[in-house]
Structure formats: C-alpha cells, structure tokens
Measured scan of single mutants.
Amino acid sequence: MKVIFLKDVKGKGKKGEIKNVPDGYARNFLFKKGLAIEATPANLKELE
C-alpha cells in the first residue's frame, strides 16, 4: 500500500515521503497512530 508519511518513522520514512509499505503495517500501526495517510489521488494533490 502506498502511504504518505505525516511524521518521521525511524527506519521506514520521513515526513512528506511517499512509500510502499505492507497493508497490515499501514492499517494497524501507521494509520492508527496518525503517522501516515493512504496515498490516494486526492491526498497526493493536497500534498503538492
């Protein structure tokens, strides 16, 4: 799953980066803790 990092996550990504991460990791950790959001076309446009 492609995500946009909202905060730095040690060993995974830095704020503003767009990366592919495992689906479970994104849903169960990154999204729940507010560390990242899904890289949807709308979210990507908002980032620019």
Rank of each mutant, 00 (worst) to 15 (best):
M1V: 14
M1P: 03
M1N: 03
K2R: 15
K2E: 10
V3A: 01
V3Y: 00
V3G: 01
V3S: 00
V3Q: 00
V3E: 00
I4F: 08
I4Y: 10
F5D: 01
F5M: 04
L6H: 01
L6G: 01
K7Y: 14
K7L: 10
K7S: 09
K7P: 00
D8W: 08
D8K: 06
D8S: 09
V9W: 05
V9M: 05
V9G: 01
V9Y: 04
V9P: 01
K10A: 13
K10V: 12
K10L: 13
K10G: 08
K10N: 10
G11T: 06
G11E: 05
G11M: 05
G11D: 08
G11R: 06
K12N: 08
K12H: 15
G13P: 00
G13Q: 03
K14W: 10
K14Y: 12
K14R: 13
K14M: 13
K15Y: 06
G16W: 10
G16H: 08
E17S: 05
E17L: 03
I18W: 03
I18P: 01
I18K: 03
I18Q: 04
K19N: 04
N20V: 15
N20H: 14
N20L: 15
V21D: 01
P22R: 09
P22Q: 09
P22V: 06
D23F: 15
D23K: 15
D23T: 15
G24Y: 14
Y25G: 03
Y25F: 10
Y25L: 08
Y25K: 04
A26G: 04
R27T: 09
R27P: 02
N28S: 09
N28F: 13
N28G: 11
F29K: 05
L30S: 00
F31M: 08
F31S: 02
F31N: 02
F31H: 01
K32S: 09
K32A: 12
K33V: 09
K33P: 02
K33S: 09
K33H: 15
K33M: 15
K33N: 15
G34L: 08
G34T: 03
G34N: 11
G34A: 07
L35H: 04
L35Y: 13
A36P: 00
A36E: 01
A36N: 00
I37D: 02
I37E: 04
E38D: 04
E38Q: 11
E38P: 14
E38T: 05
A39I: 06
A39M: 07
A39Q: 02
A39E: 02
T40G: 05
T40K: 06
T40L: 07
P41T: 11
P41W: 13
A42H: 12
A42M: 11
A42V: 10
A42W: 08
A42L: 11
N43A: 14
N43V: 11
N43Y: 09
L44V: 11
L44N: 05
L44S: 06
L44R: 07
L44P: 04
L44Q: 08
K45A: 14
K45P: 06
K45I: 11
K45F: 10
K45T: 09
K45E: 11
K45Y: 09
E46Q: 14
E46V: 14
E46P: 07
E46N: 13
L47M: 12
E48V: 12
